[in-house]
Simulated scan of single mutants.
Amino acid sequence: MKTFRRLLTVVAASAVIGGGFVVSPAIAEAAESDCAGGVNGFVDISDYLSGTVVRSKRVSDYDTPAWRPVELTVQHGNVGDRDRGWAKIEGWTEPYIDEVWMDVTFDGGQSWLQCGPFRKMTAENEPVTTAAYPTSPDPNIRFRGCASIGTNGVECTDWW
Rank of each mutant, 00 (worst) to 15 (best):
P127C: 05
A66W: 08
P127E: 10
R119D: 04
P65K: 04
L72Y: 01
P139N: 08
V53C: 04
P137M: 00
A26W: 03
Q114V: 04
D83R: 11
A36Q: 14
Y133P: 03
I27T: 14
Q110S: 14
T52Y: 10
Y48P: 01
C146H: 06
A30E: 06
V79A: 12
Y96D: 15
C115E: 00
G20E: 02
Y133A: 06
Y48H: 13
N78T: 13
D98G: 10
E29G: 13
L72V: 07
T122E: 14
G18F: 09
R58L: 15
T135V: 15
G51S: 09
E32G: 06
P69D: 12
W112Q: 05
W92C: 13
A87H: 04
W92Q: 15
V104A: 03
I45D: 02
T129M: 03
C146T: 04
G116L: 01
S46V: 04
W101V: 00
V100N: 01
D44P: 01
Y62R: 09
G51M: 05
S111H: 12
V79W: 02
G109M: 02
W67R: 11
L72H: 06
E99F: 04
A15C: 10
Y48I: 02
T122L: 08
D81V: 03
V74K: 03
R119F: 03
G85A: 15
G51I: 01
C146G: 13
Y62T: 12
G91P: 11
F143R: 06
R68M: 14
P137L: 07
F106G: 06
G80W: 00
N40A: 15
V22I: 11
A26M: 08
G145N: 06
L72S: 06
I17G: 10
C146A: 09
V53T: 15
A131Y: 09
F21C: 08
A66Y: 07
N125C: 11
